[in-house]
Nucleic acid binder design. Structure first.
Lengths: 238, 238
DNA sequence: CTGATTCTTACGAAACGCGAACGGTCGCCG
DNA sequence: CGGCGACCGTTCGCGTTTCGTAAGAATCAG
């Protein structure tokens, strides 16, 4: 009975917004060692950009920020997304906490906080959201149908036998068709690695092709974009 | 956002007993925003009076109170009513927790607690008590029929002899067919464990298969999703 | 033609699922 | 009250699958 890092939470992406470099450093170190992929922002503007572009699984947000106020950032993010937000409040004043609630924060921590507790809160909230999450809707694309909840991909109604990685890669591409990705992007989006051997992607792409292409030697669906990476095409099969 | 109110819990009355004004303020705000009607008391004596006169649906009770101790208040309330009680304990010591449970608390939270967590616990406990009064409806799925109230599962009309755990696991899967779960999710949903040995799930799955599959060696209903977990399939039997 | 890029194949370690068995606990029944 | 069996969490060993890595072949652009 060991309390190891549970895999389901591993590699979740956390965006931390904090202007104090020391706090930022400590918090991200702890979060990383707990298995999260951490992105950082030091001001509200960057935070809003990153929240929109990288769509993290959770946001840790300082209440006091240079430029846009933390509560305001919270409100704006909340206007566009339901991502869980933990607010860091400098004061333990009741007003502050209630402001935070009204801004749409899910939880708050009072500074100085223990980094260990931050990790626990992040884990606890993510665990909840995993359970409460209504399963992703299934959809069709060309000859393929993707059922993320069941982890099934069919071609022409016939179930494909993809391994876990192959499923992750191909379902990502099905969700983003007609868009070219380089290997690093795929490594980050599918593997949730910040760095790593790019040939890992190459090989997995090949293995997927083996199972989805009529002629894996001459791919027409999972196409190579020379000098860039790969793209899911559905020209031949609309 | 703090998890949205579900209608069946709307306007439930919650009595919160807490002497720290800040904690009280924050907690009641979060509870109110979740749709509960909140009454407050700052000491044990008032708490006992309010518990008797206003008969709340749930009580949140601080362990440390001026005057009468929280655990004692809990005992006295319990002596007269079955109202659910959540105890707030300052320390996470096991002794405290056991004292609390012996005093008749249904759940406990360790300070400092996240207000979000409090709301979730309150909702979860109230939902449970609602469910006990209105038993879940029986239903059919493929060749199986589940009667949650009677705790009976039939296959083709023939009653299966499942143990308690086996019933819990299989009925959960019957309620969520065609969805892949990893072992941690099952451990949490079926066992209500936060941590634990994942092989427990593996073995129980095996035992269930022994009783529901025609050929337990080659399962077609309770299927393994390699690298992920398990899924209830009903392809062959829709 | 040449260098860079991608493809293909193969290998082996690690991860994974499964079956069997063990032992502790609890309730039932003789 | 003592034994017996059901239940259930845990452990171990085995066979299989997976998947990152490396290394050489093939392909493409300029």
């Amino acid at each position: 009975m060991v309390s190891q890092q549970n895999r389901e939470l591993a590699d979740r992406r956390v965006l931390i917004v904090e202007d104090d470099p020391t706090v930022l450093e400590v918090a991200s170190t702890y979060l990383r060692s707990a298995g999260f992929v951490v992105t950082a922002a030091a001001d509200g503007f960057t935070a809003l950009q990153l929240a929109a572009s990288s769509s993290p699984d959770l946001i840790v947000l300082d209440r006091m920020l240079p430029g846009i106020d933390g509560a305001e950032v919270c409100r704006r993010i909340r206007a566009e997304s339901a991502v869980p937000i933990i607010l860091l409040t400098a004061l333990s004043s009741t007003d502050d906490r209630i402001d935070g609630l009204e801004a749409g924060a899910d939880d708050y921590l009072t500074k100085p906080f223990s980094p260990r507790e931050l990790v626990l809160r992040v884990q606890s909230i993510l665990r909840r959201s995993v359970n409460e999450l209504t399963p992703e809707a299934a959809f069709d694309l060309g000859p393929f149908s993707l059922d993320p909840a069941a982890r099934i991909i069919r071609r022409d109604g016939r179930e494909l036998s993809l391994s876990a990685r192959e499923f992750d890669l191909f379902s990502f591409l099905l969700k983003h068709p007609r868009q070219a990705f380089n290997r690093e992007q795929l490594l980050r989006a599918v593997w949730h690695w910040e760095f790593g051997d790019l040939s890992t992607v190459t090989v997995t792409v090949r293995r997927v092709r083996e199972k989805i292409e009529d002629d894996p030697t001459d791919p027409v669906i999972l196409v190579t974009v020379w000098g860039v990476g790969y793209r899911l095409d559905l020209e031949g099969t609309p």
